[in-house]
Design a protein around this nucleic acid. Structure first.
Lengths: 140, 140
DNA sequence: CTTGAGCCTGTACCAACTGCAGACTCTAGT
DNA sequence: ACTAGAGTCTGCAGTTGGTACAGGCTCAAG
């Protein structure tokens, strides 16, 4: 995409933030930890992004929304960047992540069960005896 | 509980760690942030714990296992220590926490749905086209 | 020409720990 | 009595995934 001067339209950091909904500082953070590439700079040292950076950042944000850690995002990006990425390789990463998501759900469900059954025994009264405290204090 | 010298048996930090399964350094951390009390010291400046500290630490660890934040733990302990704790007060805290646990479960379930349905479309082959990458790259 | 917005850098902060260096001290074996 | 190794003390750095300044430039509008 070129403008009428024949040069590619550049985006500054704030533009990229607005386009993606990403926090301004987070963009710099992603650059520091190496998931976003160092963009070219203008003569005055401003970061000069283009459309490819928008795509990259959106990719990262979607992966994060799906609960991938930044380490996992790095792996996914390496596969994409490598060009030789195959469905099989990606599937391995995604399945591993899916397993950890399911483990977290199971953990939280266990917590939910214990907590809700305990709270259910509460009278909610002004009495100094509470099933929740009892459960936490229990010597068993 | 007294030994044959008539003095209360003291526990060192390592003993407390072993008895509770808590990490050695975490005990010091809990003291720093004020959820564990500063224990008395021996003449050589070693922390001298007793049975009451075991109970306190177990309480903290159970609450953490149930996903309470350390801030919430502090609130629970304040209620317990205050002596004037009522079932109603504790119930409020526990219910608030229960709500946040349920919210986390809902989030993770949404992630699980998206992720599993996407991965299900993978051929797992050596082909360079992958539904997972497509989903992350999607321009929609 | 000024003023405000935007960008640059480095750094500090959040939770909830964990780990390590360097200095003591304690305990067991010889 | 001596020594080696384990335990403890302190403070501080690192972890993950960001967020938020401060102090200094630069840019665009009026």
């Amino acid at each position: 995409m070129k403008n009428h001067h024949g040069s590619v339209k550049i985006l500054r950091r704030g533009d990229l933030a607005k386009l993606t909904g990403c926090n301004l500082e987070t963009i710099r953070y992603y650059e520091n930890i190496g998931v976003m590439p160092e963009p070219p700079r203008t003569s005055k040292n401003y970061r000069a992004y283009d459309e490819s950076h928008v795509g990259r950042l959106r990719f990262i944000m979607r992966a994060r929304e799906l609960g991938f850690t930044l380490d996992e995002v790095r792996d996914l990006l390496a596969l994409v960047d490598g060009g030789a990425q195959t469905c099989g390789e990606v599937q391995v990463l995604a399945n591993a992540h899916l397993a950890s998501v399911r483990a977290k759900i199971a953990d939280l469900k266990r917590i939910e069960r214990v907590l809700s059954s305990t709270v259910a025994q509460c009278t909610g009264d002004d009495v100094p005896d509470c099933p929740v405290i009892d459960a936490l204090t229990e010597v068993t």
